[in-house]
Each structure stands twice: as structure tokens, then as C-alpha cells.
């Protein structure tokens, strides 16, 4: 056996070892009981309030730790929630809750401004199934304004000891979504304008060292004639931007069609993205608002550290 053939054999073994340890890049399954849930949008500001809902989908007690992150400081406000089997709870961001109405293990501070909320199941014992919760946040304001989003769920994939560092690597926990596919309504001047908004937050978080993540966001935009455009912006922990302010390509004049597909991806790290559709009804000219949740494709590893 020659030296080179031994060397190639070693390379092959090394390659097998490397790829055997890597996770398959798949988007996390949604609308199933999860171990981590990420609310992309919580608001308590200027006439807006948010009802935050959380439900225990298991038949066991669950201890949940949550962190509310708001710019510009990107510091976390954290609290614990204890849920009995199958228990639903909800509270208003403006008020929080302090164990009222028999919620013995629930104390939530009020939230201010707008930001994102991340919650983690803390198992009572190592090895316990952590895929147990789901949630939703409904933001409302004057004139029937309503935007509601289900939380992005991340399942625990393998049993193991609890750690305050969550490896969203496709082995311990499901990965963060990598590509977000939205259909969006092109911005258009009117009374009122059709001006949809994009809400972005980072998937990676280091809440222990309070290091805010920043990443560039790339957009690929496809109109109904399959013509492709691109744009970019950036986000630091959480941001909310009007689509046509990001780039004129989101306006009907440039796009050429009333709707388009936009594919959103963070460059330096995975992100969470949702759109708020704001449009005018075609017949009556009434202003309308709705949450626009994306389809997901591929996964991307991320790490979340909590204190």
C-alpha cells in the first residue's frame, strides 16, 4: 500500500467523521409543541398594546423562562412562568401580571416599547421532554388595528441535560429558519397608503453577556412575471421597517405587479422575520391590517445563552 493511498484513506475517514457530525439544514417544524418559542413582535407604545398568550400543550407542569428584548439597549427583561398541565395563560404587555386569578406561579413585569420575546422550557429534571409549549401575540390599536403572530417554535431534538446555552444546531435543538418566503403587497400611494412593514429580530442571542447581535439582511424579490430584484438592510436585535423605506423596489411602480414574493435571509446570522400587511380594501377603500407569517426553508445553526 503506497503512502498516498494511506493518505487518501485518512482523508476519506476524516471527511466521513466531519459530515457525520454535521446537522441537516432543515427549517424547524411549526405549530407543534416546542421547547423554545420566539414571539417576533410585542408592542406597548403610542396607543398600541399586545396580548401575549402561552399554552402548555403537555400533561405536566412546565417551568418557562422568558426574556423580553427591546432596542436600543437590547438588554433583556426576564421572568419565570409556571404552567400547570394544559394550562393557557395570557397577559397584556402594558400591565403584566402578578399571580392574579389563581396563577400562582406567574409573575410577569409590564413591557415597554416594542421588541421581541423569547421563552425557554426549563425542565425540572434532565431528560424530561421539553417540547411542551406554544404561544401567540396579538397587537391592537385604535380603529380596529390588529396584527397577530404565532410564535416561532424550536423543538428539542434529543434528550439531554439542561444547559443555559441553547445550541440550535439541528442536533440538540432544531435550527433557526434560514430563508423566509413572504408574499407581500407592493407599496402604493393612496389614502391611506399601502405601506407594509417588516419586523426583524436576531435568532442568535447572548443574554448572559448582553451582546446585541447585528446582521445584514439580504432580500430577493420576485414579481408575478418572474422578474427578480434585490435589496438589503441591517438589524441589531430588533427592528421594524416600512418596506418601501428599505428600497423602492417594494413599491408597485418599480415592482410592476400588485404582489410579489420576497425571500429574506440574514447574512451574519439567522433572523426571525414577519411582515405586517397594511393595505386599502379595493372596493370600499377602508384601511386594513393583518399579520403575514412566512413560509420557511432550510435551517441555520444559532446559539442562545441566557443568564
Amino acid at each position: 500500500m503506497s503512502v498516498s493511498s494511506i493518505r487518501y484513506g485518512l482523508y476519506a475517514v476524516l471527511a466521513v467523521l466531519v459530515f457525520a457530525g454535521s446537522a441537516q439544514a432543515t427549517a424547524p417544524a411549526q405549530r407543534v409543541p416546542s421547547a423554545i418559542i420566539m414571539y417576533p413582535n410585542v408592542r406597548n407604545e403610542a396607543g398600541f398594546d399586545t396580548r401575549i398568550e402561552m399554552v402548555n400543550l403537555s400533561s405536566r407542569d412546565q417551568q418557562v423562562k422568558c426574556h423580553y428584548l427591546t432596542p436600543p439597549s437590547c438588554n433583556g427583561t426576564d421572568f419565570f412562568v409556571r404552567l400547570t398541565p394544559n394550562q393557557p395563560i395570557s397577559w397584556l404587555a402594558s400591565r403584566g401580571t402578578l399571580g392574579g386569578g389563581g396563577h400562582v406561579g406567574v409573575a410577569v413585569p409590564p413591557f415597554f416599547g416594542s421588541g421581541s420575546l423569547k421563552c425557554f422550557v426549563i425542565p425540572e429534571e434532565d431528560g424530561a421532554d421539553q417540547n411542551a409549549i406554544q404561544g401567540r401575540a396579538i397587537t391592537y390599536g385604535a380603529g380596529g388595528y390588529t396584527e397577530s403572530f404565532g410564535a416561532i417554535g424550536i423543538e428539542r431534538l434529543s434528550p439531554g441535560e439542561y444547559s443555559s446555552t441553547f445550541e440550535l444546531d439541528g442536533i440538540n435543538y432544531a435550527q433557526c429558519p434560514d430563508y423566509y418566503h413572504f408574499t407581500f403587497l407592493a407599496s402604493e400611494l393612496g389614502d391611506p397608503d399601502t405601506e407594509s412593514e417588516l419586523i426583524l429580530s436576531t435568532c442568535d442571542e447572548d443574554l448572559e453577556n448582553v451582546i446585541a447581535r447585528e446582521t445584514v439582511i439580504q432580500f430577493e424579490i420576485i414579481n408575478e412575471f418572474e422578474e427578480t430584484f434585490s435589496a438589503s438592510t441591517s438589524v441589531r436585535c430588533y427592528d421594524r421597517q416600512v418596506l418601501s423605506d428599505i428600497n423602492p423596489v417594494f413599491s408597485r411602480d418599480v415592482l410592476g405587479t400588485a404582489t410579489g414574493q420576497v425571500i429574506v435571509r440574514g447574512v451574519q446570522g439567522a433572523v426571525i422575520a414577519v411582515i405586517v400587511d397594511k393595505f386599502v380594501t379595493p372596493g370600499g377603500g377602508a384601511p386594513a391590517v393583518s399579520g403575514n407569517e412566512p413560509a420557511l426553508s432550510r435551517g441555520r445553526s444559532a446559539r442562545i445563552r441566557i443568564p
Binding site: 405549530r31 407543534v32 409543541p33 398594546d49 400543550l57 396579538i138 391592537y140 385604535a142 380596529g144 390588529t146
Partner: peptide, 18 residues
């Protein structure tokens, strides 16, 4: 109903699946 003017609000509530 809710908000500063106590107006009517609607939103879709998608299910969790088991």
C-alpha cells in the same frame, strides 16, 4: 374589543397540531 377607542378587532388564530 379593545384599544384606545374600544374598537372591534379581528385576527386569525391558527391551530397547534398534535
Amino acid at each position: 374589543t379593545g384599544g384606545p377607542d374600544n374598537s372591534l378587532h379581528s385576527s386569525a388564530n391558527d391551530p397547534y397540531l398534535e
